[in-house]
Amino acid sequence: MVSTISRLPVLILLLVSMAAWAQTARQWLPLAKDGIHDPRNPALRLLQEPAAALSRLPADGAGNQVNWVHALERGVINPRTNILPETQVMVIDVDIYLNLRGGTPIVRFPHRAHTMWLDCTNCHQQLFASKAGANKLSMEAMLKGEQCGVCHGAVAFPLTECARCHNTPRNQPLPVGAIRGS
């Protein structure tokens, strides 16, 4: 009843959807084709390809497709904390709630995830004062690469991932003892 010719488009649809599914799997361009490495550099083959290292790390939908905080928390990677012996390692587990009067959901800033990677002096006091409410934050400044935008939008998850920072509903009470910023 159904001729072969009328089955053909079904087959094409199937193949294309399979190809589309393969596209959603994480892929990393080889260095020679990434647009910034010089493919004529004879030493290029000695460098590690991103896929070789990153495909083993926890997945993320943005940035370089790796959830770096999960990679660290789950012990998938164990990067060194210091090179100078006198460096203090200080992981602080304090959340600050921000954007309390804005329209978008409230921001819960986790010190913990940040201090696992960074030193206190990386942000304090040049980028942010160590006083809740003392910092005037602005998305425009961040989009220009200032404030949170120094890292988010460059090496940490990009600013298009709104809900990962604006993560706390406005219509629910904040936890008891929550530290309120600006």
Partner: peptide, 16 residues
Amino acid sequence: HWFHRVRFRCKVCHAD
């Protein structure tokens, strides 16, 4: 950056 942060936390280069 990806290659280095597998091995070093940000603070190693950006603080130390």
